[in-house]
Amino acid sequence: MNFYGLMLLTAIEVGAVGANLESTAETLGMTENGITLWILTIIAIPKFFMIAGIFMHLYGDPDSGILTMTALFPAFFIIIMILFIGLTHPDAASGLPAWCRPGAWGL
């Protein structure tokens, strides 16, 4: 079941790249690339959990709790990395919300 689900999701991914999403993008006020990115990201999430949770036994086994915590430990560093990717973006200073711009708190 898990295997067939993964195959189906991959087929949808490939299909989404080939599909003409221009009219959908116009309706939603987004670019076609932006919609593709959303579709690919949304599909990647269940695929990730299906492989990690079911194939790698990180769901349902007696020792899956602590092993999941071990596997997720780098998540902390990943969040820090993504934060700094955002903060070092050329548009960060002007694009950040006012409450976290330099000077907002008298700093």
Binding site: T36, L37, A44, F48, A52, F55, M56
Partner: peptide
Amino acid sequence: LYWHFVDLVWVLVFPFFYLY
């Protein structure tokens, strides 16, 4: 476990490096 991890990484590499 190792092999599934390799698959897991590809699940992210394929959409973001090959498709997007």
